[in-house]
Amino acid sequence: MSGLVLTDFSVAHGPCDVLRDISLSVGPGECVGLLGPNGAGKTTLMRAALGLMAHRGQSSISAMPLSLRAKTVAWLPQTREIAWPVTVENLIALGRLPHLAPGGTPGDADKAAIDSAIARMGLEGFRTRIATQLSGGEQARVLIARALAQATPVLMVDEPAAGLDPAHQITLMQTLAREADRGRAIIASIHDLGLAARFCTRLVVLWRGGIVADGPPLSVLTPDLLAEVFHIRAHIAQTEDGVIVQPLGLVS
């Protein structure tokens, strides 16, 4: 079983539950867009599922021992932290740490995974650049390449498209969709409904501590749901370029 299964999953923040009795199963090949307004608990859901926060109920990932967890899921938090001026190549190589034997050095498989991640994120010309001196968008791509180099069956990303220019937003979403096609399970929290609808195979909407909608983009993004959860109305159309969702205004 390589994916994520949450059963009766609850997360408390102080006395009140932020997430209540959530059951969710994401399998290989799925690219799941996690939607919800600010504060709906998207980040909390992912961090708790990873075992980074205390929770009740079962998560197939947090139940694993730490070393196995690191080989099963790669996590890309929203805060893009690069503490030291290391080269892009060395930074991406950090993704291989969970696969190295104690005291071992990176082998051919590790180098291949690093090269492949660099190629997939289009960072060939950046290898020897200092990661901290890159622009925010470039850093985001380097960090995504690090997560890809970890070569895990599950990939969880928090707001991966934030701060990227339109071309790189599309490239990123295409990369995630392609990784899903290759058999990975992808879970990405996204605020841009248009990107989510076009590139995800499935959308999950979090609201008031629970999942209020779960399914293919067009069946999830109904006018009623957009009005109730996001307080917006939007133009939704199925075109030959895929699903188009364009927010138009607020509903009062």
Partner: peptide, 20 residues
């Protein structure tokens, strides 16, 4: 040493990469 390397990416990421 290797755990400090992983911390380059922040505590959350390091924890997800197997650092206790």
């Amino acid at each position: 040493g290797r755990k400090f390397d992983a911390l380059t990416l922040g505590e959350d990421t390091a924890a997800s990469m197997g650092v206790h």
